[in-house]
């Protein structure tokens, strides 16, 4: 059989293309924006670190919701599991090495992802959404009841992380915490970029678009979704661990319905199904939350609500998705 000639689209310099696909641009962008934040808001590093932890939760949610099409309002269960995992390791077992704490958070998140996924994936559509709400309430209640370990509603304190690599102490200004968080975010982002373009990432996208076709290719849809849930749990768990390390407390709010819902709002705002959308949604939402709540502590939620309604109505692909579509249309007209 004669092989047809090379395709024009594959001619662009493959090395550069691979680096772009591999998330190099994204990693650089995060580093540059992160550095800008560091110099522009030196007194607000705690907020920026919170943003970073939140970005990890929203990225994790994007894997499940954006890439696989599973609607969930319980995703903070995975984040909270990571936060409590890392926090309990430090407060009760004296494991205060930050990288180890982060790893424990990732594992705790992955286990929570397996449990939550097992329950949530039993159902579809509306029933699935309801199950996800049940899951977050169950996790929340479990953490509340196990107050000997979690501190219950008082929160878990006594978390004193060691210096990173034994060199960088966690300082009062939160510089170390911020840089540590940024480094985690960049690593996770690059890993996810590699994941979503891998064969498994293609399968995940396939599940969102047509699960019956995925089955007809010989792939078990349920096992794909469960694996995505575990990976997603690890990512959210890293975010939770970062939160525990940087704030040195873990509260029940890290396992709350509110946090789950906020994460979903951020994702929809930025645009589902793209890692950039998740990051942009997080930054925009938390920036608005911070500035608006300072200006008007009572009505900032109204404004966020109005913003969300506008995005859903006029830019249903989210801020990032709509921008990409716009650029694409512009380019095509130029061509």
């Amino acid at each position: 059989m004669t092989a047809p000639v090379e395709h024009s689209a594959t001619v662009s310099p493959p090395v550069i293309r691979r680096l772009i696909d591999g998330g190099l641009i994204g990693a650089l962008a995060i580093a540059v924006i992160g550095a800008a934040g560091y110099y522009l808001f030196p007194n607000n590093l705690a907020l920026l670190t919170r943003m970073t932890a939140m970005a990890l939760l929203v990225l994790s949610l994007d894997l499940v919701t954006g890439y696989c099409g599973v609607a969930t309002l319980g995703h903070a269960a995975l984040f909270g599991a990571g936060a409590y995992g890392a926090g309990i390791a430090a407060a009760h077992f004296g494991i205060s090495e930050p990288l180890t704490m982060t790893l424990i958070g990732a594992v705790a998140g992955a286990v929570a992802g397996l449990v939550a996924g097992f329950v949530i994936l039993r159902a579809h559509g509306l029933a699935q959404l309801v199950l996800s709400i049940a899951v977050i309430h169950l996790f929340h209640e479990a953490a509340n009841k196990a107050s000997r370990w979690t501190g219950g509603s008082d929160g878990l304190s006594g978390i004193m992380p060691n210096a990173v690599f034994g060199l960088f102490e966690f300082d009062l200004w939160g510089q170390t915490a911020y840089i540590y968080g940024l480094a985690l975010l960049i690593l996770v982002f690059v890993a996810l970029k590699i994941l979503v373009r891998s064969p498994f990432g293609m399968l995940a996208r396939g599940v969102r678009e047509d699960p019956v076709r995925v089955g007809a290719m010989g792939v078990s849809v349920h096992s794909v979704l469960l694996r995505v849930y575990v990976i997603s749990g690890a990512v959210a768990g890293i975010g939770g661990a970062l939160s525990a390390i940087s704030t040195q407390v873990v509260g029940l709010d890290s396992l709350s319905f509110t946090l789950s819902a906020e994460a979903l709002v951020m994702l929809v705002l930025g645009g589902t199904g793209s890692l950039y959308g998740a990051l942009i949604g997080t930054i925009v939402f938390m920036f608005f939350e911070d500035t608006l709540s300072a200006i008007n502590p009572f009505h900032w939620l109204t404004i966020i609500g109005a913003l969300l309604v506008m995005v859903v109505l006029f830019a249903p692909k989210g801020l990032y998705g709509s921008a990409v579509a716009l650029v694409g249309r512009f380019r095509r007209r130029q061509a």
């Binding site: 691979r18 696909d21 590699i194 994941l195 373009r197 891998s198 064969p199 498994f200 990432g201 293609m202 399968l203 396939g206 290719m217 010989g218 792939v219 694996r227 990976i231």
Partner: peptide, 21 residues
């Protein structure tokens, strides 16, 4: 992408989390 995914699945490689077809 469709055909590549089908071939990868046939060869038991569709679960790989790194690399591009």
């Amino acid at each position: 992408e469709h055909v590549a995914l089908a071939i990868l699945q046939r060869e038991g490689q569709a679960g790989r989390v790194v690399g591009h077809y």
